[in-house]
Structures are given as C-alpha cells and as structure tokens.
Write a protein that binds this DNA or RNA. Structure first.
Lengths: 239, 239
DNA sequence: ACCTGAACACCGTTCAAGT
DNA sequence: ACCTGAACACCGTTCAAGT
C-alpha cells in the first residue's frame, strides 16, 4: 500500500556515507548493493510527480526519473517492471486527490457533481494517464478501488439499483475522461478558418457559442447535468 | 482533399523503370529525384491504415511505414512534417467512415443514436488517435469538419438553440471518446480480487452487474440515453 | 537484495548529396 | 521537387558484475 512504507526515498540521500563519495550532490555511488535501499515505490512516485509538474509528460523518461533520484536508470527496474508501472503509481496517487467527500453528506446530485468536477480537474492536468487508467485492472490500484467503493456506497444509499451501479459509474467516468481532454484543447480548435464557407451551419454555431467561462467548462456542465438527471431517474427502480 | 488526388501511391510501383532496378520487389531505387513521385498523402494514409490493421499502433513507426511504401524513412518527410501528421491523416479518413446518414432522415433522437454508436465503434478500434483528435484544430481535418457540419445542421433543424450546439456536440464527443476506451478494457477490469473484503459495496455492485451483451455496450447505452433525453430537452428553448 | 555500467534494439527527425 | 543514405540524439529495457 502506498503511504505505509517505512523508508522515505522521496528525497535522495546526499549525506556522505559508505557507498557514497562525500561532499556535493554530484557524488557517485560505486557499484554493488548499498547498505540501505535508496529507492522505493513511494519515492519513485513522488519523483515522477515532481518531474511531470516541472517538465510535463514528455519529460517523464526513465532516464530523467533516475537522474532525479540520483540512481542509474536500470536501478528503477528493481522496483517497477516497466514505465507503465510508474504511470500506474502516479495514477493511483492522483486518484486519491479526487474529492469524494460529498457522498454521505450532500444529496446524490450534489455528490455526483462535486466528484465529477474534481475528477475531471485532476486528470485534465494529466491526460497522458487516461489511456492507462481506462484499461487498468482495479486490483493494481488500491486508491482507485477505494474511490469506487465510496462512490458505489453513495449510489446504493441514494436508492440506485445495485446491478446498474457499475454501468452508471463507467458512463460517468467515460464522460469525465473525454472531457478532461477538452480542457487541454486550444481555444480556437473549432475555428473553421478558410473552410467556413463550405460549412455554414457549423460556422454559425461556433460563432454564436461564445459565452462566459471556458468552453470546456460549459460543455462539461451541460453534459454532466444531462447525465445526472438521466441517471438519477433510475433511483428507486428495479433492475 | 483526400480522395481527389490524381496519383495512386497506395500500392508502390514495382515495375521495372528508370530509377528502379528491374525484377523482384526487393529492388532499390538509386538516390536522386525519381521521374515520377512515388509518395503522396493518400498513399501514406492507405499504407498507415493497412499497417495499423496488421500490426496495431505499436507497429506504426515511420520506419515500418516507409518499408511498406518501399522508400527510405526520410522520404516521408517530403510529404508530412511529423508522425503526428500521419496520425491526422488516418484520423480524418476514419471520421469519414462515421455514419451521419440518419441526420435528415430520422428523428433527432434516432439520428444522434446512430451517429454516436457508429462514432464510438470506429474509434474503439483506434483509441491511440483519441489524444490526437481531442486537440486537433478542425481546419486541419476536412472530413472531421464535414461531419460537424452535418451534425450541426441536424441539431439546428431539430430546434436546438444555435448557441448551445457546439457545447452539446463536445459533450457527446467527450462521452464517445471516453467510452471508446472502455471497449478495449479487459473483461475483468473491475474484479476486486484479494481487495474484495475491504471494498464490499463496490464488490457487490460488480458481482450483480452481469447482464447480456458486453459491459462496455451496456454502459454506453445507459449514458447515451441519459445524454439524449437531457440534451433533447433543450430543443425549442432560447439560449 | 539492490545498486552500477555497458550494451541492445529500437525511435523520430535532420540534412547533405544526388538526379 | 523528391528521393537515398548516413547520422544524431534520444528511448525503454536487459544483464553481468559488484557488494
């Protein structure tokens, strides 16, 4: 489980000790097993998040991650089987940041609203993880599973038929992931430019769609409210 | 526009001609400009689609694409600026396969249903394109723009307020793209395994959710019907 | 068990040289 | 204008050697 490990490897040790040349942070460890492990999954996760926040996902390479942790790239493979494993660690950490607190304290509608906006906002900053999440078995992601547990209980307590809960969550999540991409799109993505004349109805729709706030937020709010009212109608029904 | 070019470069020329050693398909062109261009965008698109269908997106490399077309990898850069350009060509071709025919012939609800299912089915087989589409300016994708034009006209003719059309399409598309990923997920993605005891409500929901058909189809149908009824309520209203 | 260092089999992309 | 061939600056991953 993340967060329960004894060692803290988020900050690499730079103190002078055996296996480490003294002095500045440029010192190299010599080959061979160090007296204490310098890496663990929690430290790798922290370093990966830090790297992503500074350099983006293009900058998240195994070599850069190793450099940040002051180890050789191959050392990472003692703790993760692949780069995909690193992305899973990051994904599971981010999921723990999603706000599920409204389930149990607010109405079902408000709880879904709070959860969905928070979920979208978190992953809008991390869209390269979306292809990974979508295919991720929940067994490999304890925080993600914990989120589903809280949401499922909220749906059940609100009178949602048990056999429809997974489908409803999947539908909401699909909308959330797709909408996370929209946030990253350029503002003029729909500007028809020189193709305007050949596409008059769409061009008129684009030109008249300007409103307050970000377009991605308008579309997300519109779709989310439709899903909440449509799915909400299932409460109290039999399967 | 795709499909209107005179040259056909989908099948590379293997006939013996100047700049080409005679005989089998293993012949090498010698350096220098050939008397007739061997590449064009339509041929690159066809070759990329063929490669993807045979080897998947992991197999779509510039080197493999060049090999399929019997040119050196660097030759591709006379016709596309980057690999992303190749993905755009493929994306725009695939969009032309989406069924928009029900707009203008069926009810708004049926037209949206037909379009959405078709759109999801096409891109479920091509999920690696989704991050590309989501950020793609429509000017660069004429077929994609044409699809939006048809859909916009269908919405307008059904009494949809013009200033909400783009948001409604974006919301539907977001749901469609997110749902396309679900189709590719393993069937046991939600199986809690050893974590079942700690997550009883979710586990019960997963165990009771088995129904006829693919789970991804059940969730897509549920969300799509919610979106259709929620968005459909906007027809005839003012902005 | 857990590091280093060297190596492997790739990648996308650039560019001079050739016709 | 549009090809070839060589090169560049990477990638993720493997594995023997070391402690």
């Amino acid at each position: 489980m993340l967060g329960t490990t004894k060692e803290r490897a988020g900050m690499p040790a730079v103190s002078a000790e055996e296996g480490h040349t003294a002095g500045t942070g440029t010192g190299r460890r010599r080959a061979g097993r160090p007296s204490a492990a310098v890496l663990d999954k929690a430290g790798i996760t922290t370093a990966a998040l830090d790297l992503v926040s500074r350099k983006g996902y293009d900058g998240l390479t195994m070599a850069a991650l190793a450099k940040q942790l002051e180890v050789a790239p191959s050392a990472l493979y003692n703790h993760v089987a692949s780069k995909r494993d690193v992305l899973l660690l990051v994904e599971d950490h981010l999921t723990s940041l999603v706000d599920v607190s409204a389930f149990g304290s607010k109405s079902w509608e408000d709880a879904v609203r709070t959860w969905a906006w928070s979920y979208r906002d978190v992953f809008a900053e991390h869209t390269p993880l979306i292809p990974v999440i979508a295919v991720l078995p929940v067994t490999d992601a304890p925080q993600t599973l914990a989120m589903y547990e809280t949401v499922s209980k909220g749906f059940l307590d609100a009178g949602f038929p048990e056999e429809r809960i997974v489908s409803a969550i999947v539908a909401l999540e699909s909308f959330i992931f797709g909408s996370a991409y929209d946030v990253t799109a350029p503002g003029d993505i729909f500007e028809p430019g020189s193709m305007a004349d050949a596409n008059p109805h769409f061009t008129a729709a684009v030109r008249s769609s300007a409103g307050p706030g970000r377009p991605a937020d308008t579309a997300f709010g519109l779709g989310l409210e439709a899903l909440i009212s449509g799915l909400g109608a299932l409460r109290g029904q039999a399967g």
